[in-house]
């Protein structure tokens, strides 16, 4: 996982010592801030692509996992014709499907972790939009960085427009808006992953079934506390999925299960929390403002 590099820019100062809002320091601050914003927004656009491809991987893994699971449910009742003469054919087939399900569980988990990483990257990026002056005022070498040295400098150039119209907080606002969508979507994806990881057939219970409160991978709680869990979303996470999970009903009803699975896959695919039009708009508008194509 990459962390946003600490950017620093150097400009040769020709101006005499001045206050941060003076025209000369503004003249130095602006190009540095512009470079930084272009850089951060390009990374945000890349994150969107990474999300799309991870999400699509996850979808095919979820589909295979579900198919392997449903095959296990249907196998005992299946009429195999001449094949039934083979000794233990059903048991063998069941074992095979079970192994497939295990394999897809592992893959899905990795994909889920990728999705978390992407959202974390986005959050880091959105927090790196400001550009702070570094070093002593009045030094002939004006330096800038995106981590703050002093509380006096807000890193926003005194609120002036960075390119044409928008100031730093406006860029941050848009970034937050889009990240909020991804956080919400990550939350849904996590629910789906928990559900998909915990489905198991009666014959071969999954070794270590997960619940809402389980950590899906080591260090997940810490990651989540940085993205999902700091929002209002968390309040709704149920303590346990025992009472509502479909696979915990006394008897596995093949039809009900396959309907639920269809719904899960549709939920995964639809990404209801990502408003595609709005996302396009945010990237288009920002792209126009910073004169970079963010497609």
């Amino acid at each position: 996982m990459e962390t946003p590099e600490k950017l620093s820019f150097q400009r040769l100062s020709v101006a005499s010592p001045s206050t941060p809002q003076s025209s000369s320091s503004t003249r130095l601050w602006r190009p540095a801030a512009q470079r930084n914003l272009r850089n951060q927004w390009s990374k945000l656009a890349a994150c969107r692509q990474r999300w799309a491809s991870a999400s699509s991987n996850g979808r095919s893994q979820a589909t295979s996992l579900i198919n392997a699971y449903l095959s296990q449910i249907y196998m005992p009742a299946m009429k195999l014709g001449v094949l039934s003469d083979f000794p233990d054919i059903k048991e063998k087939a069941l074992r095979k499907f079970f192994k497939q399900q295990e394999l897809q569980r592992r893959k899905l988990l990795i994909t889920y972790k990728d999705l978390v990483t992407i959202v974390l990257d986005m959050i880091d990026i959105s927090r790196s939009m400001r550009c702070y002056s570094k070093g002593a005022t009045g030094s002939p070498l004006a330096q800038f960085s995106n981590c703050s040295d002093s509380t006096a400098d807000a890193g926003d150039g005194g609120g002036i427009p960075v390119f044409r119209n928008w100031n730093i907080p406006q860029f941050e606002l848009l970034a937050d808006e889009l990240i909020q969508m991804f956080k919400m979507e990550l939350d849904i994806k996590r629910r789906l992953v928990v559900e998909l990881l915990s489905i198991s057939s009666e014959n071969s219970p999954v070794a270590n079934a997960v619940t809402w409160s389980s950590e899906l991978y080591p260090g997940e709680s810490e990651d989540l506390s940085r993205c999902i869990l700091d929002s209002t979303v968390t309040n709704q996470i149920p303590k346990s999925n025992l009472q509502c999970s479909i696979n915990k009903t006394t008897k596995v009803d093949g039809e009900a299960v396959s309907k639920a699975m269809e719904v899960y896959l549709t939920v995964w695919l639809s990404e209801v929390n990502l408003d595609t039009d709005r996302l396009d708009e945010i990237f288009n508008l920002t792209g126009l403002e910073i004169q970079v194509n963010l497609k």
Binding site: I188, V263, T266, V272
Partner: peptide
Amino acid sequence: HRFPVLQDSNNFGCLKSYHALPDKLLRKQ
């Protein structure tokens, strides 16, 4: 084809009561 399945919130399992998901999903579809 999927609409009837999505319209029955019983098919949503644990996600049934999650942030009006059934409605959102139907609208998105």
